[in-house]
Amino acid sequence: MNSFFTFINSSVGKKLLMSLTGLFLSLFLIVHLAGNLLVLRQDGGESFNTYAHFMGGNPLVRTLEIGLFLFIAVHIVNGVRIWWQNRKARGKRYDVYRLDENTTLPSRMMALSASLVLLFLVVHLRKFWVPARFEGEQNMAGLVVTTFQNGWYVLFYLIALVVLGYHLRHGFQSAFQTFGWKTKRYAGLIEFAAAFFWLVIPVLFACIPLYVYLTGGAAVASLR
């Protein structure tokens, strides 16, 4: 039997790590979405702010948050490693290469969609997480409303969610293939579950900026 280090450093091991972190991050999306949807409760932002406060103050959540960032970091670093090794494996490129005739678009653009999601993540964290955590922002609902009254932000978020959907379109079911669970028997079930992640979750997320933008957000939060 080989060591754990050998295991995790093997090509399959790295893919497993990718899948594991990816799935964890997907699960986080559910939690994140559930909280965010509180914005849509038309209570002037009270529920959402309470939630945001809880997330910022609870030590357990703070610990989990560190874990989350760790997972993101592993997902990125590991992803870059895999990408680089795979690139090297080809050597000389093909002059004509019709990968498009054999594969789906999302599966071909994982590195690109990942980079875009990362870009989005930086902007998103700067916009919401940094103010909440480090700048003492109390009225998170208000921040949401002011942000999404700007049409450019809305557009940026919508594009980002489409890209995230693409990333998950391939990534989610791919993880199950990597775990070896995607057998003929479960393929349908996995595809079904995957649709929740790549379609339903991004659409629900998209509702927030759209709703705010279209209604002006007066019911969502009281602006100071």
């Binding site: 090509s11 893919k15 895999i82 795979n86 090297k88 594969t103 599966s107």
Partner: peptide, 15 residues
Amino acid sequence: EKFGSCSNTYACEAE
């Protein structure tokens, strides 16, 4: 042997 790793594009199955 320096083969790459699988990213589940399934181009292999197709060809």
